[in-house]
Design a binder for these strands. Structure first.
Length: 312
RNA sequence: GGUACCAUAGCUCAGUAGGUAGAGCAAUGGACUGAAAAUCCAUGUGUCCCUGGUUCGAUCCCGGGUGGUACCA
């Protein structure tokens, strides 16, 4: 697409399409990308991995309709990755793409990853695997209390505000203090960074009961396409973080012989419903989100285009 | 057709020596700056099947329905 204008001296416009799993984000994004002859960035922390496209409902070649997709299947489950790297990778890509595209589209369901691109994330050290092991040991031996006490010594201020029953929060806090020699509080500034491009956030909304129907149907579909085989292939690597994911955990329990297949499928559906709920909780508090009704693809696309034109 | 047992939350069930009830799961609301499809927190859910009787008071006791399960014909 020829670049026509640059609004407010910005490089371009990033349209973010967010929403719960199975809300039809992917299809909407592709239609919008066709309309503006542009490209798509995926903000989905599990579709990154090339070994698990089926179980993460990653877009297929056919669904992509020739639209270039970035950050889909670009990593192996054996590679380490995190939000901060994603932020930098996306910013770099956008800077390049905005030279030739006025509009870029980012679509996905990982709220933290979307926030990192839109607002930035504080510069903090990446986790050190050795340190993680040590922290895990402490958790196993002393539980969250042990971690909480440790954190209180290192950063009493963070200890006051942190969710003290959440081992991951506690571990991260301790980890940053130890790796930097400074309290986490001093470095966790949460300042919103200005971006050199315009951002329009859109949320795809569904009535709960209809979304639940879609989730159930899609789960059955994914299984019919051979999800179980995919799970069998990665089963030997089950300890990897990338596989700590809705669906795989349950299918592994079946492969272990702990659950019947029917049981595993029921659990997948339940856990997917819950995942969708958490995604909505995250999105609802973001006041910048413009909501569109996802129940019918036609109006949603028209609404989207209207929103985009309003900003351009 | 007969006999026995059962009927309580969306589901599986517990319970009330007669004073209108509670667990698990599901569900709902929320938090969340490097594990985020992760991790964590909070919260209820009710004609106790219907209908007569006894009783100050029945989800509980008694009678009659209705439905289910098992066994016998």
């Amino acid at each position: 697409m020829q670049k026509i204008l640059t609004p407010n001296n910005k490089q371009g416009l990033l349209v973010v399409i967010a929403g719960p799993t199975a809300s039809g984000k992917t299809s909407l994004a592709v239609q919008l990308a066709r309309h503006y002859r542009t490209e798509i960035i995926s903000a989905d922390s599990r579709q990154f991995f090339k070994e698990i496209p089926l179980g993460t409902a990653a877009p297929t070649e056919m669904e992509m309709q020739g639209i270039p997709h970035h950050f889909v299947g670009h990593l192996s489950i054996h590679e380490g990755y995190n939000v901060s790297k994603f932020e930098l990778d996306v910013l770099q890509l956008l800077e390049d793409k905005f030279k030739t595209h006025e509009v870029m589209i980012m679509v996905g369901g990982s709220g933290l990853y979307i926030d990192a691109v839109c607002n930035g994330i504080d510069l903090l050290p990446d986790p050190d695997p050795e340190m993680r092991n040590k922290l895990n040991d402490t958790f196993i031996k002393e539980g969250v209390m042990g971690l909480a006490n440790w954190l209180r010594e290192l950063d009493p201020e963070y200890y006051e505000v942190v969710d003290r029953s959440n081992r991951m929060r506690l571990m991260r806090g301790i980890e940053v203090c130890l790796q930097t020699g400074k309290p986490f509080t001093e470095q966790r500034l949460k300042t919103k960074r200005k971006r050199p491009f315009e951002i329009l956030k859109v949320g795809v909304e569904w009535p709960r009961d209809l979304l639940v129907d879609r989730i159930h149907q899609r789960t059955d579909q994914m299984l019919a396409l051979g999800w179980l085989d995919e799970a069998k292939r990665v089963y030997p690597n089950r300890q990897l973080n990338a596989l700590n994911t809705v669906g795989y955990k349950e299918l592994f329990a079946f492969l272990d012989g702990d659950w019947s297949l029917d049981m595993a499928i029921e659990k997948i559906k339940t856990n997917t419903r819950r995942y969708a709920k958490r995604q909505m909780t995250w999105l609802r508090r973001d006041m910048d989100v413009h909501w569109v009704d996802g129940t019918d693809a036609g109006p949603a696309l028209q609404d989207l285009i209207q929103l985009v034109e309003g900003v351009r």
